[in-house]
Design a binder for these strands. Structure first.
Lengths: 247, 247
DNA sequence: AAGTGGTCTAGACCACCGG
DNA sequence: CGGTGGTCTAGACCACTTA
């Protein structure tokens, strides 16, 4: 069913988790993995590059690949809805719509959703919880062509992305996220049950279809301590920085 | 000098920025790009997959690649030091060591740096600025084998990563970052010039060599409003979510 | 000097999208 | 249905690491 390179990537992930390859140790050479799995070297390279993108292994020309760790944290590697994310962590997502109304698009809405200022948009205010505990306040803005589908969702819809897919077939394919920290405003504080001015992790996000058409933009504010996000990183294969002149 | 696939990736990036390919439009087919650049299809695929990883283009089987945007924001795609990052944004990084002392490793230090509890570590408290404005408070912990090199850096060292590379040849190759929001403690507040309890963006980070050996771990606290981080995302090529049972 | 990953080629087949 | 991207192969050469 799955592509061979994905199967191999999975087997390698499991082997690392199982401890077959120690953290800090090396992976077998590409050619050896190729013969072991009965595939060509190119297929092996596809598999290991997936693990490298996840931050599990590192590589550099001339040296064996190194096992860096067995990450399991929720990362940004893949676009996931809140409900999917919760399920992957073994928790139950909940949600409730507090406000929902149509209004003309502001300049900010227009730029993010690639529509004209003054076009009708649908604004929604939702609170979301994990295993019953409130963690997130979501302010979403949808363009007019999504509005009626959103309005027809139940107010306590668990997975908005799934609901909109079922209703319209629209796929949330790409996301761009900007992360910072803000102080809770009075509405934030009241709805999340925190003190005014307390720190919130804010993620502003634009989501688009495969074709790059914006579906929504959102200002998500997470209660401090309730969630954190992880990112893994590697230097480009460049020989680091060009050294300064002297010596 | 650079690999052909990187040159092609650069040319495509410039072409997108120049507007040769409109946002929302499509890129030429792989085979056409291959003949145009005089390379094989595999090389073209290497180039476009770099753009996909940056969130500039999207792709799905059977359809032309779609131009999503021309991002320029500082993203996590590549591991960069604070100084490099500042330079890429056209700003001047500064830094100053406020405290620096050796102490025995706590359990937390030991786990993050993969050393034994009680081993000597070097703790450093730095403030860092962008164009003279204070934005960041850094609490670093280094293992013993890095300590003397760190101590020999000037107190106002602009680029710690560069300085340590020059002194020891150690390369900061991999990073893992955990992001959340916290309230400023009294020391944070005093040193960053904000009110106690005001929101800070916290990034806790472990950096390792190519071989996965931890070089340092750090608790970085950014003043709210001074910086934000961007991440681009795509859904796996999976046909989204498995639909629920009915219909 | 041998081993290893990085790059590149030329070709093949398939699954999927679009008109 | 033709065009497209996704997968896979078998081979080649090079740059780099390691011992």
């Amino acid at each position: 069913m799955a592509a061979r390179h994905e199967e191999i990537a999975d087997e390698l992930r499991q082997a690392i988790d199982r401890g077959d390859y120690r953290i800090g140790g090396t992976l077998p050479a590409e050619t050896e993995l190729a013969t072991r799995y009965g595939v060509s070297r190119g297929t092996v390279r596809q598999a290991v590059s997936a693990l490298a993108a996840e931050g599990r292994i590192g590589s550099r020309q001339g040296a064996r690949r190194v096992v860096l760790g067995n990450r399991r944290s929720q990362s940004f590697a893949e676009l996931r809805s809140f409900a999917q994310w919760a399920r992957a962590m073994g928790q139950q997502a909940s949600g409730r719509v507090l406000e929902q109304f149509r209004r003309p698009a502001t300049a900010e809405d227009a730029s993010r959703l690639q529509i004209e200022q003054g076009d009708e948009v649908l604004q929604v205010l939702r609170v979301r919880g994990l295993d019953g505990e409130l963690v997130l306040l979501e302010r979403n803005v949808y363009p007019e062509w999504m509005a009626s589908a959103v309005e027809s969702l139940p107010a306590d819809c668990e997975s908005v992305v799934q609901g909109l897919y079922d209703a319209t077939g629209v796929i949330f394919a790409h996301g761009e996220h900007v992360i910072d920290a803000v102080a809770a405003g009075s509405q934030d504080a009241r709805l999340l049950g925190v003190r005014r001015g307390s720190p919130l992790l804010r993620i502003r996000r634009v989501t688009t279809t495969h074709a790059g058409r914006p579906i929504e933009w959102s200002d998500d504010r997470y209660r401090s301590g309730s969630v954190s996000f992880a990112v893994a990183n590697s230097i480009g294969s460049n020989p680091l920085i060009r050294r300064a002149a002297e010596e």
